[in-house]
Design a protein around this nucleic acid. Sequence first.
RNA 1: GCUGAGGUGGUGGAGUGGACAAUCACAACAGACUGUAAAUCUGUCGUCCGAAAGGGCUACGUAGGUUCGAAUCCUACCCUCAGCA
Length: 387
Amino acid sequence: MNLFTLKHQEGFARAGIIHTPHGEIQTPAFIPVGTQATVKTVTPQELLDTGSQAVLANTYHLYLSPGVETIREYHGFAPFMKWDGPTFTDSGGYQVAFLWTPKEAKERSSQVTITEEGAVFRSHIDGSKHLLTPEKSMEIQDVLSADIIMAFDQPLSQLSTREKQKDAFERTMRWETRSHARWTELQKTREHKQALYGVVQGETDPILRRASLDFVLRLDFPGIAIGGSTIGSDPQITADALDTIVESLPSGKPVHALGLGGGPEGIFEAVKRGVDTFDNTSVTRMARTGLLFLFPEDGGGIHNKFRSDVHKFSPTDMAPISSVCTCMTCKTFSRGYIRHLFVNNELLGGRLASIHNIHYMNTLMEAIRTAILQEKFTHLYDNWLKK
RNA sequence: GCUGAGGUGGUGGAGUGGACAAUCACAACAGACUGUAAAUCUGUCGUCCGAAAGGGCUACGUAGGUUCGAAUCCUACCCUCAGCA
């Protein structure tokens, strides 16, 4: 069975199915991020209820805690967190390269040393020193046991010099070659095969992006992941980055956008350019800080980035967050009540908001899938992004 | 009524002669939130003018006093709390 079945294409936008040992993913799809084997504040059942099809967890975090041996006992992070569906893991490359909060960027980044062998970094938990290599990332991801895993790469930093970027770009290809080799070995003894995605770097540089994509295609990775800080940073920049390779994306392989943050604007641009799946932390992070997504029917649009701050609701606003949303939160609770929860730092607020935002994103993706199959994606795009 | 403690910005609470428009925290308001070290982070927060630097005005219960200078010292008054009656 192929990993990916293309059902229909409208322009470069495509609707398809990713087949995994743990079920299918109808694409285009939003993949909620469960870094530490939990999509923060929500249970696996709630993930299902909100229409989620898969979960993405992280090599870096789970390697540090609870550790590989613990996860091995559970036969993977999915059984550990009681998620039965398809899963992804990220390679840890991103964390190793960006182990910082923006505020502490300088001091933190100095704690990571990149060598040809791999990345030496210090644990954010206890300060202990670790070496993560492409081989080790594959071995950890083998234990984490996701259906779809990522090659170990070194994301480029826009802050660094051109030479350093070129250096990282070329090293990433060597690391991906090593990732591919180790993955090939490990698959031989696995019952459930894992699909390894090669990571395409290069930001908005057409030469670099195409070289990176050519490389990934040449090694014949089962899937293609698009990385870099230009993905998800801004809808236009995301579009620019994807435009460099959109015409060269193969129809037979799934394309994943790594870290496509933000709201519907960037997602429409990405889907329009052939992205099948993407993970996005802002859906749940914004929920926890009180930013709720709005449908066009609720007044959501480019002007307000499709979002509303819960703190600005009236305390006596009896209406649901959205009049058209069918999530548990909207079917049950009022804006005024959810505002009350946030104002008083009640944990339920973040939970209810997360449920709404995840449901919102999955509803949007379902509408996009349907639209592509009916050749109405352009119409939907215009309808959502009209000014 | 007596004894003791105390009255500071939206709130709690520092400050006990000059560096005070007043530490800090909370609230409020504004903003940010990319492969999640985020239920987090950043900014504003007496008032008026100014883009800013900066300047004016009013303020530490009330009234008066001492002093070059008072939220800080003195006097009187008002009020609050605790204990005793």
